[in-house]
Design a protein around this nucleic acid. Sequence first.
RNA 1: UCGGGGAUCGUUCAAUUGGCAGGACAUCGGGUUUUGAUCCCGACAAUGGAGGUUCGAGCCCUCCUCCCCGAACCA
Length: 567
Amino acid sequence: MTENERDAALKSDYIRDLVAADTASGRFDGRVQTRFPPEPNGYLHIGHAKAICLDFALAAEHQGVCNLRFDDTNPSTEDVSYVDAILEDLKWLGFTPASVFHSSDYFEQLYEWAEFLIMRELAYVDDQGPEAVAEQRGGFGRPGVDSPFRSRSTDENLDLFRRMRAGEFAQGSRVLRAKIDMQHENMQMRDPVMYRIREETHHRTGDSWSIYPTYDWAHGQSDAIEGVTHSLCSLEFSDNRELYDWYLSQLPIEGPLPYQTEFARLELTHTVTSKRQLKELVTAGVVDGWEDPRLPTLRALRRRGYPASSIRDFCAFIGVARTNARHDVELLESFVRTELNRSSLRRMAVLKPLKLIITNWPTDADGMPVTDDRTLANNPENEDDGTRTVPFSNELWIEHDDFKMEPPPKYFRLSPGREVRLRGGYLITCTDAVCDEDGTPIEVRCTYDPATAGGAAPDGRKVKATIHWVDAKSAVDGTVALYERLFATKSPGEDTGQPIDDLNDESRTLMEGCKLEPALANTRSGQVVQFERLGYFAADPDHKMLFHRTVGLRDEWARLEKQAKGQ
RNA sequence: UCGGGGAUCGUUCAAUUGGCAGGACAUCGGGUUUUGAUCCCGACAAUGGAGGUUCGAGCCCUCCUCCCCGAACCA
């Protein structure tokens, strides 16, 4: 548990208050058990992370358990590949479920309970198709009407239901429905479907079932079977709660029954967090698959370099509420920066290289420029991270943005006549620059002060800027992917209903031919380092020398430039 | 239209359950600095509206407005 998570544990919210009240009253003998119940039909994203953190934290705060349960009741959309991915992502996020269950583990028990309801005249087989059922359901403020099959005899229902199971009927031809109240004000209670016929192979039960339980019929009962006490879910299930309770109350289940509590799902600015919308982005080819670093899926965030702990801290910090809210993605990024600032090693990389020549650099006996091995701290925030050696010579790469022939106001960096510090190197003074016909600088010429090795001047004189650099001879080439917001607007699709209309065309910029200091050739796959003065960058796990910008550093100069432009 | 839920600084989460509306992020200003980073200090800024109860209302009551969810054999 990080500090932030501990702090959150001390906080109270309406869910923690409920749980505390239950433990105090002995409702579940003081037991707290939760579950994270994903459907294996998509990849986990930041929204799931909120639910995961909540489910696990709540259990942990009361020495309870949190299980993972795959809600695999619909073989048409589910697949093992998602099961594996969810397991992997959950582990990466830092959580280990006490047990891994599947709703399909309970198919036989659910079936028995369904027969039980039939015998109590609380369920019936409806021979109608989906259209007729929907038609009879009524609408908002408009009561439904009873199905013509509603009052079948128990024997006929039992016979039909068993034949449904045996696979005698075609998909869509019949369903089993709970007999509740077609006039109920809550649409969920208007004789909801419990079983539908599916001629599909289930990823775990194979072809042994022809009928599959619906979410409502499976969920609460699965909770009860596992001994769940607090069943947390998102707000859109509020209306299902009444049905959740109804099913449990009709069944012969011993002991205190689990109950459902809802909370608002997480939304973030400039992105989407719905499986459907994410899938659209992937299938439309807007992004390169589910792992594209611009996506809010956990595997994408991992590739991008977001530390799992920063996601956990973020989730703990935002807490839980019933308000539909869209959190500023900058808040998430501030947690990422905080973590990476203390944990990432510092390196130097030049993304837009500009040649810099030191004209008074010493040569050896053969007339070749000498190489000076500079020693730089790996992380000034943490001395234990040690130092590294960075070669320095007469030919260097600096950032294009760090030199201007004619410096604008408040620009502290290099320009003719100016002295700046090369980080960890020397103080240099620009003497002149070579430009191409457009006036774009192509080579900067400087002299260095030999007395300033390491970057400090013995006479105590100050320079206003320190810039980063990479020695040209020893530099290694790399590719850097720069990311901006995937969507240009805070709430994608707010105007047109189509998030895709709000895409940011410049969400990814590939920088080829970047010049990196030699140590970066040894970056571990997935490792996140800070490119000094630029941001945090994650080494791609599959492609050597490809780095993804996790998040940029705060940039005062960029702010000033923007301000100047705005005027 | 009916049912359910919600509304507090720009954003988001708080407010000891009726007692000086607080934090974080963002923004703005300043200090430190061999990263215009980090760090530190300061500032800005809110109870959707109208009534009512009360010594006292973000909190309780009434009415209004706005937002979200719900009419899959999805979850």
